[in-house]
Computed example of a mutant assay.
Amino acid sequence: MNWPKNTAPRQDSDTAAGIEVTDNFERFTQRNDIFTRAFWDPKVKSKQTATFFASYRMEAAPRRGDGFTQRDFALRNAAWLISDVISNRRGGDGIREGFQAAIQSDTPVAPEPIEIEDPARMSAEVKRISKFFGADLCGITDLDDRWLYTSRVDTRDFSEAPHDLPEGLNSVIVLGHEMEADLVATYPSALAGAATGREYSHEASVVMQLAAYIRNLGYEAVPSMNDTGLVIPYAVKAGLGEYARNQMVITPEFGPRLRFSKIFTNLPLAHDAPKPLGVRAFCDICTKCADACPVKALPLGPPLEGGGNISAIKGVRKWTSDAEKCFSFWAKMASDCAICMRVCPFNRNYDKIQNRLWLRLALSPFRKLALRLAKDHGGRVKPGAWWAQDKKQQAGKAS
């Protein structure tokens, strides 16, 4: 692959991004991600996992109790609707767009590309247009092929199939989409899953529209969600945040409360640089996410190479979760879990000055004080309280 001139040397870029790749590195095969394994691997596939997936179609009887009522499941599943429409539209071909395969472009590439004289100015334009379509964050990095999956997944038999990406792609536009804080505060619950589903539906729309814009300019653009490649390394290299113990990207704007999507393109763009601020040093002394995990799927110690099962990438020294333990809890609840997101000390509203001050403290040599101040941070809010907001608003109007 010919790297663009504005791409920093890979080794230097890795160091700045805090990415530690060893000699044992192997690109990841998406067939081995835990969600795909739930369809073919007897070690993961079970009646509980079948119920988990069926619950997103209201086929499974909802659990009783606060946060798991029919109304909670109904909102969660409605939030996923647009994403589901996109991912299911080519199911007969074994292609699940946005999850096990890239999203098919509905817009042809214009035959006459516009001339790009200044890639930096074009990057600024792309970021502005991404915000116009609804993205909350946007960063740009080089297409580092180490983070591409070795193949896509044919969902007819869950075998490996080629990506069929266009030739000449050299940049990745990474988009961040904020999850609603009030819903995240109710994890674990089916209600909280609406925050995840809404952003998947939002990002499907945003990433497809931005890709269509680029294609209308005369350049290739492949919209992508969970498919095609690992988004976290791209997000970190694009300067959007830093990798954390809870397996998430911590951003200075929203903490870990984000979903990410991406676009692979050959549009001439200037690339952003990683921006290490000190999250790694804070996570070295903080284990709130690991302590709060019900199935102890998150690591307590320092970053290590590899993982306990095939759902972990090989040859990268990092904090790695036990995906099998994690997904077993999701299947048991018939909904996603993000307790580790909820309790994270960085999960705050940074519109408030006190939280911006806390962030400065957490990223400074006084991080231990910041950790003590976050001792009681991230408690669970009862899901019923989220629904009760409607009643409070109505009562306020009546008075």
Rank of each mutant, 00 (worst) to 15 (best):
R10I: 13
Q11F: 12
S13T: 14
D14M: 08
A16F: 02
A16E: 05
T22I: 06
R27K: 11
T29Y: 07
D33S: 04
R37D: 02
P42R: 14
S46C: 09
A61V: 08
Q70H: 11
R76D: 03
N77Y: 00
N88P: 15
G92M: 04
G94V: 05
G94Q: 02
E97G: 04
G98S: 04
Q100V: 08
A101T: 13
I103H: 01
P111S: 15
E117A: 10
D118P: 11
D118K: 05
S130P: 09
F132G: 06
F132K: 04
V153K: 08
E160F: 13
P162A: 15
P162F: 10
L165R: 05
P166S: 04
L175D: 00
S189K: 11
A190C: 08
A190G: 07
L191P: 01
R198C: 05
E199T: 13
A211N: 08
L217H: 09
P223M: 02
V249N: 00
L269S: 13
F282N: 00
D284A: 10
E305I: 09
G306I: 01
G308H: 12
S311D: 15
A312D: 15
S321Q: 10
C337F: 03
C340A: 11
V343H: 05
N347F: 01
R348T: 09
Y350G: 03
Q354S: 08
P365F: 11
L369C: 08
A374Q: 12
K375Y: 08
H377W: 15
H377K: 06
G384A: 06
W386N: 02
A388Q: 09
Q389K: 05
Q394I: 11
